[in-house]
Design a protein around this nucleic acid. Structure first.
Lengths: 340, 340
DNA sequence: ACTTGGCACTCATTCGCCCGGAGTGCCAAG
DNA sequence: CTTGGCACTCCGGGCGAATGAGTGCCAAGT
């Protein structure tokens, strides 16, 4: 059952029309809007074949056709050309992101920008701690036996963590501790930290070891997996547009968007900054978001993916537009990170 | 036109029923649900009076009555007793907030807890920088002429800020700069900072002054108003419950919730931790949120209000429940902050 | 003077129904 | 393989009647 060129063209046209109008598309309007030089009857025959292949479906007898997930998949894989960004969009990216310096600032702007460009919900994961190296560790005394540890990574992420030192610690010891922590940790990532830090307390006098051990443990734990979960979200108002339409009720989606764990699973493993991931509908098996598609891509300095960003929308989304927007923004952010 | 005891009771009953059922309440169901020892006709007479007073209204002729904003106002001011928290709620607060140490952690948990307790959208403002004092300033070199300034306030808030030093600065100078910044700033709040910091560069050699000035300016600016705008939000999924109901479309509300500036105006000035503010419907004149009520209260160590937290919901919300939840949570958080 | 039962009236909501129109599948001819 | 014709399906909107909750008012009772 080969699909000749024209049938694929019909599928593409159906996807594009459906995404644009949100209404099932019929054979007649199809030949009109796209200047196909055949009659509606011919298109109907083609559509019958496409339906047999499971690429399109009709919501009910004698309504127009709607793409299936399989249809979107084929569209994304083979039919969607790269949709170049408009000049305005390109400009929006650089003006929006240009002024940012701190990482927080960069990511906050990024997520808003993505949401605005795609008119979808945008999600940006903070640079993974396990993939980053420690750039600096700071210990600030808060109480005699308590300090605030501030960790700065090479990606510019700043993490804070309370450390209970177990016993009163004077400034001199704290300073010494800080220097040794930095010496052991700077430039290293989690996997390489474990060894160096485990020996760190040995360099201290017996009564100082508990504090040193507590600080080392805190550093290790903060750089570990539990703290990966940091995500920025924007554009939830764009969901309202789909809610009025129909299908998915908003509640599960909004709930999912507030659950960072869910979001992280949704974004999935960080891919190379140049490889887009598109997961369509049930391809991401997350309870509340079964009717949603995700377009995501890794980002980070050079080709080193530190985390993932992307947009979440209904299966009937503008894939070419979303894909090019996500890719362009990820590239820009990657450049910024590389520049630091 | 005096409102005797029973008429007020009828108003209270109407508010309670309407909040519970979301449907206009009629005279008959009223006498049934609340065991009033009078006939529906009597209630009807009372309701006619209440309507003349503008406290209730009927959506259309011969439907039940619905409280007006004025009615809610009277209810909140005079009729709603304090609704004690259930044991489960009390327990939820301490288990939920008990484990938190870092400020970030505390506030993230707080906002989720509030959303869960009230089934509304919860909003928590980060402790105001202008009302806080500087506890510690750190300068971390990122590049020869660029450093990351980390500011820690007495409330535990950690702010990061990139500083362009204008010229390469070696570690010794950076360290010296850091010490002087701390000496000038520690324990002071914004208003008191201006003088001390303006003289700070004078202590440095001429070629070092630009860097010192840049750092001072960065510190001042960060502690200033522009950065006040930090807010945590949770419970947007609870909005879905009202959306299905009717009235306000979700979009403007979701948009408003993503605009921090709007949120801050919504929360309003921080009041004393013991004084609840309830703004009902149009009492807060914010475009998108005209149909919403806000229950808010200040929080902070002791009676020193550092910021505001609260919940946002439809005018027909459970005011007594929201008020007691907000108050209890704010008290608990204030205690935590005082404990640090 | 307030309360109460009775009663006529109003009006949103719901259901059934009909009808138009868009769209299809199939068939026979080109 | 394409095309025009044609019968068929079925969604969606519009209309009208029935439903029923709720009201306002009045006259009688306490």
């Amino acid at each position: 059952m080969s699909l000749d060129e024209r049938k694929l063209g019909v599928l593409r046209a159906i996807v594009e029309d459906y995404v644009a109008t949100q209404e099932p598309v019929g054979s007649k309007s199809l030949v009109e809007r796209h200047h196909l030089d055949v009659s509606p009857a011919t298109i109907r025959n083609d559509m019958a074949v496409l339906e047999e292949e499971g690429l399109i479906a009709q919501p009910h007898t004698s309504a127009g056709r709607v793409p299936t997930e399989k249809g979107y998949r084929l569209f994304v894989d083979r039919l969607s050309g790269v949709k170049p960004l408009s000049g305005a969009e390109r400009r929006a990216i650089s003006t929006f992101l240009g002024g940012a310096v701190e990482l927080d600032d960069v990511l906050t702007r990024t997520v808003r920008l993505l949401a605005q460009l795609t008119r979808q919900v945008a999600v940006v994961q903070y640079p993974s701690l396990t993939r980053s190296t420690v750039h600096h560790v700071e210990l600030v005394p808060l109480a005699p036996s308590r300090a605030l540890m501030v960790i700065i990574t090479d990606a510019g992420r700043v993490e804070q963590r309370m450390v209970e030192l177990g016993a009163p610690v004077d400034d001199a010891l704290l300073s010494e501790l800080k220097h040794r922590l930095n010496a052991a940790a700077r430039g290293r990532r989690l996997a390489d930290l474990v060894v160096g830090l485990s020996e760190l307390p040995d360099g201290f006098a017996a009564e100082q070891r508990p504090a040193a051990a507590a600080a080392s443990a805190a550093l290790l734990e903060t750089m570990g997996e539990r703290h990966e979960e940091r995500v920025a979200v924007a554009g939830t108002a764009n969901l309202a547009a789909f809610a009025t339409d129909f299908d998915v009720s908003l509640k599960p989606v909004l709930e999912a968007l507030e659950e960072q764990v869910v979001l992280l699973r949704l974004l999935g493993e960080a891919t190379s900054p140049s490889t887009l991931t598109v997961r369509i509908g049930s391809e991401n098996q997350l309870s509340g978001l079964s009717g949603a598609s995700v377009v995501s891509v890794g980002y980070g300095p050079g080709d080193h993916a530190l985390a993932t960003m992307g947009v979440v929308g209904p299966t009937r989304m503008d894939y070419p537009g979303a894909m090019s927007a996500v890719r362009a923004v990820a590239r820009y952010v990657s450049q910024i990170l590389a520049g630091n």
